[in-house]
Amino acid sequence: MDYTELPGLGRPVSRIGAGCWTIGGPAVNNGKPIGWEGVDEDAAYAGLVRSRDLGVTLFDTADVYGLGRSERLIGRLLAEMRRDELVISSKVGYFAGTARHPYLQRQIRHQLATTLDNLGTDYLDLYHLHSTDFGPQDAYLAPAIWTLRRLREEGLIRAVGIRAPHRFAAEWATDPDHPHAAEARRFLALYAAVRPDAITVRHNLMTPLYRPDETDVLALARRDGVGVLLKQTLGQGLLLGTYRNRTEQGFSSADHRSRKPVSSTLVSLVEHAVGRIGQRFGTARSDLARVAIQYALHTAPGAVALVGFRDATQITDNLARSGEPLTDQNLHFLHRVMSPVRENLTESGPLAGPAQKNRPTDHQ
Protein backbone atom coordinates (compact mmCIF):
# COMPACT_ATOMS: atom_id res chain seq x y z
CA MET A 1 0.00 0.00 0.00
CA ASP A 2 1.28 3.45 -0.92
CA TYR A 3 0.63 6.46 1.29
CA THR A 4 0.26 10.18 0.64
CA GLU A 5 -0.10 13.41 2.59
CA LEU A 6 -3.68 14.66 2.40
CA PRO A 7 -3.76 18.45 2.97
CA GLY A 8 -5.62 19.54 6.07
CA LEU A 9 -4.97 16.33 7.96
CA GLY A 10 -1.27 16.73 8.64
CA ARG A 11 -0.60 13.02 8.40
CA PRO A 12 -0.10 10.33 5.74
CA VAL A 13 -3.06 8.27 4.55
CA SER A 14 -3.33 5.23 2.30
CA ARG A 15 -3.69 6.13 -1.38
CA ILE A 16 -6.58 3.70 -1.51
CA GLY A 17 -9.41 4.37 0.90
CA ALA A 18 -12.41 2.26 1.86
CA GLY A 19 -15.61 3.68 0.37
CA CYS A 20 -18.23 2.65 2.92
CA TRP A 21 -21.50 3.64 1.26
CA THR A 22 -22.25 0.10 0.08
CA ILE A 23 -21.81 -1.58 3.46
CA GLY A 24 -24.57 0.56 4.92
CA GLY A 25 -27.04 -1.66 3.07
CA PRO A 26 -30.54 -0.66 1.92
CA ALA A 27 -31.97 2.65 3.11
CA VAL A 28 -34.61 5.26 2.29
CA ASN A 29 -34.32 8.96 3.13
CA ASN A 30 -37.12 11.45 2.56
CA GLY A 31 -38.98 8.84 0.51
CA LYS A 32 -36.06 8.19 -1.85
CA PRO A 33 -33.89 5.04 -2.07
CA ILE A 34 -30.30 5.80 -1.07
CA GLY A 35 -28.82 2.42 -0.18
CA TRP A 36 -27.54 -0.88 -1.53
CA GLU A 37 -29.38 -4.17 -1.26
CA GLY A 38 -27.90 -7.58 -0.60
CA VAL A 39 -25.50 -6.53 2.14
CA ASP A 40 -24.86 -8.83 5.11
CA GLU A 41 -23.67 -6.92 8.19
CA ASP A 42 -21.20 -9.53 9.38
CA ALA A 43 -19.76 -9.96 5.88
CA ALA A 44 -19.48 -6.18 5.53
CA TYR A 45 -17.61 -5.96 8.83
CA ALA A 46 -15.25 -8.70 7.68
CA GLY A 47 -14.58 -6.53 4.62
CA LEU A 48 -13.65 -3.62 6.87
CA VAL A 49 -11.24 -5.80 8.82
CA ARG A 50 -9.71 -7.08 5.61
CA SER A 51 -9.32 -3.51 4.32
CA ARG A 52 -7.40 -2.60 7.44
CA ASP A 53 -5.23 -5.72 7.15
CA LEU A 54 -4.39 -4.78 3.55
CA GLY A 55 -3.06 -1.41 4.70
CA VAL A 56 -6.09 0.84 4.17
CA THR A 57 -6.09 3.66 6.72
CA LEU A 58 -8.78 6.01 5.37
CA PHE A 59 -12.44 5.04 5.75
CA ASP A 60 -15.07 7.25 4.15
CA THR A 61 -18.69 7.15 5.31
CA ALA A 62 -21.70 9.45 5.89
CA ASP A 63 -24.60 9.81 8.28
CA VAL A 64 -27.05 8.65 5.59
CA TYR A 65 -25.12 5.56 4.49
CA GLY A 66 -27.53 2.94 5.78
CA LEU A 67 -28.89 5.68 8.08
CA GLY A 68 -26.03 5.10 10.52
CA ARG A 69 -25.27 1.42 9.84
CA SER A 70 -22.08 2.18 7.91
CA GLU A 71 -20.78 4.41 10.69
CA ARG A 72 -21.61 1.83 13.36
CA LEU A 73 -19.71 -0.88 11.47
CA ILE A 74 -16.66 1.37 11.31
CA GLY A 75 -17.15 2.02 15.02
CA ARG A 76 -16.74 -1.72 15.65
CA LEU A 77 -13.42 -1.58 13.83
CA LEU A 78 -12.27 1.52 15.70
CA ALA A 79 -13.03 -0.21 19.01
CA GLU A 80 -10.29 -2.74 18.19
CA MET A 81 -7.60 -0.18 17.39
CA ARG A 82 -5.93 3.00 18.56
CA ARG A 83 -7.92 5.94 17.24
CA ASP A 84 -4.90 7.53 15.57
CA GLU A 85 -4.30 4.44 13.43
CA LEU A 86 -7.25 5.27 11.15
CA VAL A 87 -8.46 8.36 9.31
CA ILE A 88 -12.26 8.67 9.34
CA SER A 89 -14.23 10.86 6.95
CA SER A 90 -17.97 11.39 7.31
CA LYS A 91 -20.57 13.80 5.95
CA VAL A 92 -23.60 15.89 6.81
CA GLY A 93 -26.28 17.56 4.73
CA TYR A 94 -28.83 15.03 3.50
CA PHE A 95 -30.64 14.00 6.70
CA ALA A 96 -32.81 16.68 8.29
CA GLY A 97 -34.75 14.62 10.82
CA THR A 98 -37.45 16.91 12.22
CA ALA A 99 -35.44 20.06 11.52
CA ARG A 100 -36.40 22.54 8.80
CA HIS A 101 -33.18 21.87 6.92
CA PRO A 102 -30.13 19.57 7.23
CA TYR A 103 -27.80 22.59 7.51
CA LEU A 104 -29.60 24.24 10.38
CA GLN A 105 -26.85 24.83 12.95
CA ARG A 106 -28.38 22.71 15.68
CA GLN A 107 -29.07 19.93 13.15
CA ILE A 108 -25.42 19.85 12.07
CA ARG A 109 -24.36 19.55 15.69
CA HIS A 110 -26.99 16.88 16.32
CA GLN A 111 -25.86 14.86 13.31
CA LEU A 112 -22.21 15.15 14.26
CA ALA A 113 -22.98 13.99 17.81
CA THR A 114 -24.83 11.00 16.38
CA THR A 115 -21.96 10.26 13.98
CA LEU A 116 -19.39 10.40 16.77
CA ASP A 117 -21.58 8.15 18.91
CA ASN A 118 -21.97 5.67 16.04
CA LEU A 119 -18.20 5.63 15.53
CA GLY A 120 -17.35 5.55 19.22
CA THR A 121 -14.89 8.42 18.87
CA ASP A 122 -14.64 12.00 20.06
CA TYR A 123 -13.52 13.56 16.77
CA LEU A 124 -13.61 13.20 12.99
CA ASP A 125 -10.57 13.61 10.79
CA LEU A 126 -12.62 14.97 7.89
CA TYR A 127 -16.20 16.27 7.78
CA HIS A 128 -17.83 16.93 4.41
CA LEU A 129 -20.72 19.17 3.46
CA HIS A 130 -22.48 16.38 1.57
CA SER A 131 -25.21 18.38 -0.18
CA THR A 132 -24.96 21.65 -2.09
CA ASP A 133 -28.54 22.62 -1.16
CA PHE A 134 -28.26 25.39 1.43
CA GLY A 135 -31.88 26.47 1.27
CA PRO A 136 -33.53 29.43 -0.52
CA GLN A 137 -30.95 32.08 -1.43
CA ASP A 138 -28.36 29.91 0.38
CA ALA A 139 -29.81 31.01 3.71
CA TYR A 140 -27.99 28.22 5.58
CA LEU A 141 -24.63 28.49 3.82
CA ALA A 142 -22.93 31.07 6.04
CA PRO A 143 -24.30 29.52 9.27
CA ALA A 144 -23.14 26.06 8.13
CA ILE A 145 -19.64 27.35 7.38
CA TRP A 146 -19.49 29.13 10.73
CA THR A 147 -20.66 25.98 12.52
CA LEU A 148 -18.00 23.79 10.90
CA ARG A 149 -15.30 26.29 11.76
CA ARG A 150 -16.49 26.30 15.36
CA LEU A 151 -16.48 22.49 15.41
CA ARG A 152 -12.91 22.55 14.17
CA GLU A 153 -11.90 25.06 16.84
CA GLU A 154 -13.52 22.78 19.44
CA GLY A 155 -11.48 19.81 18.20
CA LEU A 156 -14.53 17.81 17.11
CA ILE A 157 -13.40 17.80 13.48
CA ARG A 158 -9.92 18.23 12.00
CA ALA A 159 -10.65 19.19 8.38
CA VAL A 160 -13.57 20.27 6.18
CA GLY A 161 -14.55 18.94 2.77
CA ILE A 162 -17.07 19.59 -0.01
CA ARG A 163 -18.21 17.64 -3.05
CA ALA A 164 -17.51 18.74 -6.61
CA PRO A 165 -19.77 18.47 -9.65
CA HIS A 166 -19.24 15.53 -11.99
CA ARG A 167 -18.07 17.92 -14.72
CA PHE A 168 -16.27 21.16 -14.03
CA ALA A 169 -13.73 23.55 -15.46
CA ALA A 170 -13.21 26.99 -13.95
CA GLU A 171 -13.17 28.61 -17.38
CA TRP A 172 -16.74 27.50 -18.06
CA ALA A 173 -18.01 29.89 -15.38
CA THR A 174 -17.24 32.93 -17.57
CA ASP A 175 -18.57 31.42 -20.80
CA PRO A 176 -22.27 32.39 -21.03
CA ASP A 177 -22.84 29.86 -23.81
CA HIS A 178 -21.39 26.85 -22.00
CA PRO A 179 -24.07 24.35 -20.88
CA HIS A 180 -22.37 23.91 -17.48
CA ALA A 181 -21.62 27.59 -16.85
CA ALA A 182 -24.12 27.97 -14.02
CA GLU A 183 -22.90 24.80 -12.31
CA ALA A 184 -19.29 25.95 -12.61
CA ARG A 185 -20.11 29.36 -11.12
CA ARG A 186 -22.00 27.68 -8.30
CA PHE A 187 -19.11 25.41 -7.39
CA LEU A 188 -16.56 28.21 -7.53
CA ALA A 189 -18.74 30.32 -5.22
CA LEU A 190 -19.07 27.46 -2.70
CA TYR A 191 -15.37 26.66 -2.97
CA ALA A 192 -14.45 30.28 -2.21
CA ALA A 193 -16.91 30.51 0.68
CA VAL A 194 -16.08 27.20 2.38
CA ARG A 195 -12.32 27.18 1.69
CA PRO A 196 -12.22 23.37 2.01
CA ASP A 197 -9.29 21.26 3.07
CA ALA A 198 -10.48 18.46 0.77
CA ILE A 199 -12.78 17.87 -2.19
CA THR A 200 -14.58 14.68 -3.17
CA VAL A 201 -15.06 14.22 -6.90
CA ARG A 202 -16.15 11.38 -9.17
CA HIS A 203 -13.14 10.26 -11.19
CA ASN A 204 -12.70 7.04 -13.13
CA LEU A 205 -12.08 5.61 -16.59
CA MET A 206 -15.39 7.09 -17.79
CA THR A 207 -14.63 10.65 -16.68
CA PRO A 208 -14.48 13.07 -19.65
CA LEU A 209 -11.06 14.46 -20.49
CA TYR A 210 -10.30 18.17 -20.23
CA ARG A 211 -8.29 20.42 -22.51
CA PRO A 212 -4.85 21.66 -21.36
CA ASP A 213 -6.25 25.19 -21.04
CA GLU A 214 -9.10 24.07 -18.75
CA THR A 215 -8.79 24.06 -14.96
CA ASP A 216 -10.69 20.99 -13.77
CA VAL A 217 -11.26 20.05 -10.12
CA LEU A 218 -7.99 18.14 -9.90
CA ALA A 219 -6.01 21.07 -11.28
CA LEU A 220 -7.84 23.49 -8.99
CA ALA A 221 -7.01 21.36 -5.96
CA ARG A 222 -3.34 21.05 -6.94
CA ARG A 223 -3.11 24.81 -7.40
CA ASP A 224 -4.53 25.53 -3.96
CA GLY A 225 -3.06 22.63 -1.98
CA VAL A 226 -6.45 21.01 -1.36
CA GLY A 227 -6.77 17.27 -0.77
CA VAL A 228 -8.81 15.09 -3.15
CA LEU A 229 -10.87 11.96 -2.55
CA LEU A 230 -11.88 10.11 -5.73
CA LYS A 231 -15.30 8.50 -5.61
CA GLN A 232 -16.86 5.87 -7.89
CA THR A 233 -13.40 4.65 -8.88
CA LEU A 234 -14.94 1.35 -10.03
CA GLY A 235 -17.97 3.00 -11.62
CA GLN A 236 -20.42 1.28 -9.24
CA GLY A 237 -19.44 -2.06 -10.78
CA LEU A 238 -19.69 -0.98 -14.42
CA LEU A 239 -15.91 -1.09 -14.83
CA LEU A 240 -15.80 -4.62 -13.40
CA GLY A 241 -18.30 -5.96 -15.92
CA THR A 242 -20.79 -6.86 -13.18
CA TYR A 243 -23.56 -4.33 -13.72
CA ARG A 244 -25.79 -6.04 -16.27
CA ASN A 245 -26.30 -9.16 -14.15
CA ARG A 246 -27.45 -7.05 -11.23
CA THR A 247 -29.69 -4.95 -13.50
CA GLU A 248 -31.40 -8.03 -14.92
CA GLN A 249 -32.16 -9.25 -11.42
CA GLY A 250 -33.71 -5.90 -10.56
CA PHE A 251 -33.17 -3.73 -7.51
CA SER A 252 -35.26 -3.33 -4.37
CA SER A 253 -37.09 -0.10 -3.57
CA ALA A 254 -34.39 0.76 -0.98
CA ASP A 255 -31.52 0.46 -3.48
CA HIS A 256 -30.50 3.74 -5.11
CA ARG A 257 -30.08 2.02 -8.48
CA SER A 258 -33.84 1.43 -8.68
CA ARG A 259 -34.41 5.17 -8.91
CA LYS A 260 -32.48 6.09 -12.05
CA PRO A 261 -31.20 3.10 -14.02
CA VAL A 262 -28.09 3.43 -16.17
CA SER A 263 -29.04 3.49 -19.86
CA SER A 264 -28.73 0.22 -21.78
CA THR A 265 -26.66 2.06 -24.39
CA LEU A 266 -24.09 3.09 -21.82
CA VAL A 267 -24.01 -0.38 -20.28
CA SER A 268 -23.37 -1.90 -23.72
CA LEU A 269 -20.62 0.60 -24.51
CA VAL A 270 -18.90 -0.04 -21.17
CA GLU A 271 -19.21 -3.81 -21.58
CA HIS A 272 -17.54 -3.60 -24.98
CA ALA A 273 -14.74 -1.43 -23.55
CA VAL A 274 -14.28 -3.69 -20.53
CA GLY A 275 -14.12 -6.67 -22.87
CA ARG A 276 -11.21 -5.08 -24.73
CA ILE A 277 -9.55 -4.15 -21.45
CA GLY A 278 -9.92 -7.75 -20.30
CA GLN A 279 -8.25 -9.03 -23.45
CA ARG A 280 -5.21 -6.90 -22.69
CA PHE A 281 -4.99 -7.06 -18.88
CA GLY A 282 -7.01 -10.12 -17.84
CA THR A 283 -10.68 -10.71 -17.11
CA ALA A 284 -10.56 -11.52 -13.38
CA ARG A 285 -12.08 -8.98 -11.02
CA SER A 286 -8.60 -8.27 -9.61
CA ASP A 287 -7.29 -7.52 -13.12
CA LEU A 288 -10.10 -5.10 -14.00
CA ALA A 289 -10.01 -3.45 -10.57
CA ARG A 290 -6.26 -2.95 -10.89
CA VAL A 291 -6.74 -1.11 -14.19
CA ALA A 292 -9.53 1.12 -12.83
CA ILE A 293 -7.72 1.97 -9.58
CA GLN A 294 -4.32 2.57 -11.15
CA TYR A 295 -5.86 4.75 -13.85
CA ALA A 296 -7.49 6.92 -11.17
CA LEU A 297 -4.31 7.17 -9.11
CA HIS A 298 -2.11 7.91 -12.13
CA THR A 299 -4.35 10.66 -13.49
CA ALA A 300 -4.92 12.24 -10.06
CA PRO A 301 -1.48 12.35 -8.39
CA GLY A 302 -1.64 12.71 -4.63
CA ALA A 303 -5.35 11.88 -4.44
CA VAL A 304 -6.94 9.03 -2.49
CA ALA A 305 -9.04 6.57 -4.52
CA LEU A 306 -12.10 5.29 -2.65
CA VAL A 307 -12.92 1.65 -3.37
CA GLY A 308 -16.20 0.06 -2.35
CA PHE A 309 -16.99 -3.50 -1.28
CA ARG A 310 -19.61 -5.70 0.37
CA ASP A 311 -17.41 -8.32 1.99
CA ALA A 312 -13.84 -9.49 2.53
CA THR A 313 -13.67 -11.34 -0.79
CA GLN A 314 -14.61 -8.27 -2.79
CA ILE A 315 -12.13 -5.94 -1.11
CA THR A 316 -9.40 -8.59 -1.40
CA ASP A 317 -10.07 -8.98 -5.12
CA ASN A 318 -10.32 -5.22 -5.62
CA LEU A 319 -6.95 -4.56 -4.00
CA ALA A 320 -5.08 -7.75 -4.96
CA ARG A 321 -3.14 -6.09 -7.80
CA SER A 322 -3.92 -2.44 -7.11
CA GLY A 323 -0.27 -1.56 -6.50
CA GLU A 324 0.86 -2.47 -10.01
CA PRO A 325 1.17 0.77 -12.05
CA LEU A 326 0.18 1.20 -15.68
CA THR A 327 2.63 2.13 -18.44
CA ASP A 328 2.16 5.18 -20.65
CA GLN A 329 1.36 2.81 -23.50
CA ASN A 330 -1.37 1.19 -21.43
CA LEU A 331 -2.81 4.60 -20.53
CA HIS A 332 -3.00 5.59 -24.20
CA PHE A 333 -4.79 2.31 -24.89
CA LEU A 334 -7.31 2.98 -22.13
CA HIS A 335 -8.02 6.51 -23.38
CA ARG A 336 -8.71 5.13 -26.84
CA VAL A 337 -10.89 2.24 -25.66
CA MET A 338 -12.98 4.42 -23.32
CA SER A 339 -13.52 7.24 -25.83
CA PRO A 340 -16.99 6.03 -27.00
CA VAL A 341 -18.11 5.74 -23.37
CA ARG A 342 -16.97 9.26 -22.56
CA GLU A 343 -18.70 10.64 -25.63
CA ASN A 344 -21.94 8.96 -24.59
CA LEU A 345 -21.73 10.37 -21.07
CA THR A 346 -20.98 13.85 -22.42
CA GLU A 347 -24.13 13.68 -24.51
CA SER A 348 -26.44 11.92 -22.04
CA GLY A 349 -25.41 13.34 -18.65
CA PRO A 350 -23.90 12.00 -15.41
CA LEU A 351 -23.78 8.30 -14.62
CA ALA A 352 -26.03 8.61 -11.58
CA GLY A 353 -28.24 11.38 -12.95
CA PRO A 354 -28.56 14.90 -11.59
CA ALA A 355 -28.14 15.36 -7.87
CA GLN A 356 -31.47 15.17 -6.07
CA LYS A 357 -32.35 16.89 -2.84
CA ASN A 358 -31.74 14.55 0.11
CA ARG A 359 -30.27 11.84 -2.12
CA PRO A 360 -26.55 11.12 -2.19
CA THR A 361 -25.12 10.17 -5.59
CA ASP A 362 -21.90 8.93 -4.12
CA HIS A 363 -18.96 6.52 -3.95
CA GLN A 364 -17.89 3.07 -5.07
Rank of each mutant, 00 (worst) to 15 (best):
G10T: 13
P12N: 03
V13W: 00
R15V: 14
I16N: 02
G19Y: 02
G19F: 03
G25D: 00
K32S: 05
G35K: 03
W36H: 13
D40F: 01
D40L: 11
E41V: 14
D42R: 14
A43P: 05
L48R: 07
V49D: 00
S51V: 01
R52N: 01
D53L: 13
L54P: 00
V56Q: 06
A62L: 10
V64Y: 12
S70E: 04
R72D: 02
L78D: 09
M81K: 14
D84Q: 10
D84V: 06
E85Q: 09
L86V: 15
I88T: 04
I88A: 10
V92S: 05
F95A: 00
A96E: 10
A96H: 09
T98W: 12
H101D: 11
H110K: 03
Q111V: 13
Q111G: 07
L112M: 04
T115Q: 09
G120L: 08
D122P: 01
D125T: 07
L126P: 07
Y127L: 15
H128W: 14
D133W: 03
F134W: 13
D138F: 05
D138Y: 06
Y140G: 01
I145M: 05
L148K: 14
L148T: 11
R149K: 13
E154G: 08
I157Q: 05
I157H: 00
A159K: 06
G161K: 06
H166P: 07
R167M: 12
A170F: 01
E171Q: 15
W172E: 02
T174A: 15
H180Q: 09
H180V: 07
E183C: 05
R185F: 00
F187G: 10
V194M: 02
P196H: 11
P196V: 06
D197P: 08
M206D: 03
D213L: 05
E214P: 08
T215G: 07
V217F: 01
L220A: 12
L220N: 02
A221N: 07
L229H: 03
L230D: 04
Q236E: 14
Q236Y: 04
G237A: 00
L239K: 04
L240E: 11
G241F: 02
T247N: 10
F251L: 01
F251V: 02
F251P: 10
R257M: 01
R259Y: 15
K260A: 14
T265D: 14
S268P: 04
S268T: 15
G278M: 08
F281C: 02
R285I: 02
A292T: 11
Q294P: 03
A296Q: 07
A300M: 06
P301K: 11
A303F: 10
V304S: 00
G308H: 06
F309L: 12
R310Y: 04
I315G: 04
T316H: 07
T316R: 14
D317P: 03
S322T: 09
S322E: 03
S322F: 11
G323Q: 03
E324M: 07
P325R: 03
T327S: 15
D328K: 11
N330D: 15
H332E: 14
V337G: 05
P340N: 06
V341H: 06
R342Y: 10
R342L: 04
E343S: 14
G353L: 12
P354C: 09
K357D: 14
P360W: 15
T361K: 05
T361Y: 08
H363Q: 11
